[in-house]
Design a protein around this nucleic acid. Structure first.
Lengths: 252, 252
DNA sequence: CGAGCACTTGAAAGGGGTCAAGATGTGTGG
DNA sequence: CCACACATCTTGACCCCTTTCAAGTGCTCG
């Protein structure tokens, strides 16, 4: 039932929800006893994903719904001629595939940026969650709304911010989320300039030059296939970043 | 309790849900008897909005949740220096303010593009909907997911489509939604070029020139403060538009 | 009848795209 | 262990799509 392969992550062997590491993080709302019990049975097992693997493809009908336990991924859409737009990222505690669960066919693809472990749930049992645990159902809607919020902000970034502001914004956004979700404790993001470009709607070349500019100002440093944020405050300032809410957030 | 002023719309006087015109449209899923009864009591009244009025402002804590009964509006965010990004539109059957209901503070503003009538619900009673009508709760999540889908597509448009494709895409997108929601039966959209520009992340001047190009090709015509779509198929082709699902959608 | 909004158009400037070529680094197969 | 393919990152040159600036035309409205 639970397929597990270790990809360099701490070994996880169909981790029971009672021992879920996310419950201990103070950014997340912990479960009530009966909820924990239900979610534990709702969860069908773990799924290990290799870095670079495609988790879900646009157009697919997948019977599962996932939650990120560790690692991260990006969601994207393609145009016929190959132009790619990264739409958002998924980090620990985030849902993957909810949209497909509700509306049938996936409207976007998901690819792992690092080795990941996902918790697997059964679409078909989703409605029973709504029937038996309204609070969890409410949480799901909450999570969907949070996603919507992030997309709004990303749209603002892609549509109206300058290249320099865009890169600054994205890096602060990702660092903030990575730290809150426990993806990393350090100030580094293991990401490619191509990903940055495809998220912000600009070319790789120009992304590179913009990054060089930020590096010259001492705000960031690009080192061995990733970014180190040297001065998050200055970046946030440049990006016109407004801190997100500090409310505890739910997860599944 | 119910404030109603007619703004040129068909007169509505705290319309009971039993007579809701949306129920008759075949694009919407109708209620079960008990659901209809509940929603009828959940609804606190109608609210008439004038064209150009602000329905909700970013940062506000509004105790209400709305549904569009007639007319339409746009959702937007602002940067400090006034740059504006329109993030999406709300048409009959769409929710307004769900994000604020769940997460507290509104993260965007909403402004009416025409006279509107909204159905007013009480945030505070939202959870009782989750407790008593899981199917409606499921619908709410469905609607949030649908919004997410549209935002994904808009992000793709703003980030990766060319100016010509952008305008073509937006017009097809709006026309399709307007017709499905019953906002209009005609092939016209009463919208400003400034709105188009702010939705697509381009300047008004360039928007104007792009529109002129589409007009010259005979795909659209801009007449007295609005757009008439002359050739929707050609526009869709140009935009790389893929038709949306034809599943009946829920509403509140 | 002036003020203001929405739409046009032209010209000039610039941000960002495309092309090209090169430097590194890394994983694969011979 | 080397060779080669491939991915990622850099840089420079050139060009064009968009922006910005400006000026002008209707139209509506107080």
């Amino acid at each position: 039932m639970s397929k597990v392969r270790d990809n360099g992550n701490p070994a996880v062997r169909s981790l029971p929800c009672t021992q879920c590491p996310l419950r201990r993080r103070k950014t997340f709302r912990d479960f009530e006893a009966d909820e924990l019990d239900f979610v534990g049975r709702f969860k069908k097992g773990d799924l290990a994903i290799k870095k670079g693997a495609t988790v879900l493809v646009e157009g697919a009908h997948n019977p599962h719904l996932y939650t990120v336990l560790s690692g991260w991924a990006f969601r994207y859409k393609l145009l016929d001629d190959g132009r790619r737009q990264i739409v958002n990222f998924a980090m620990p505690g985030d849902l993957i595939g909810l949209q497909g669960s509700l509306m049938g066919e996936m409207q976007h693809s998901v690819e792992a940026l690092s080795p990941m472990v996902l918790c697997v749930f059964e679409k078909a049992e989703l409605f029973s969650l709504y029937e038996r645990f309204p609070a969890l159902a409410y949480d799901l809607t909450w999570m969907a709304s949070r996603e919507e919020c992030m997309l709004d902000e990303n749209l603002l970034t892609v549509g109206r911010r300058t290249a320099l502001e865009k890169v600054a914004y994205l890096l602060v956004f990702l660092l903030e989320r990575a730290q809150q979700s426990g993806l990393t404790g350090k100030r580094t993001l293991s990401i490619t300039q191509q990903h940055v470009a495809d998220t912000l709607g600009i070319s790789v070349v120009h992304t590179n030059k913009t990054i060089a500019k930020l590096a010259k100002r001492g705000l960031i440093a690009w080192e061995d296939g990733g970014c180190r944020i040297v001065n998050p405050e200055a970046l946030a300032e440049l990006a016109g970043w407004s801190a997100g809410s500090s409310v505890k957030r739910p997860f599944l």
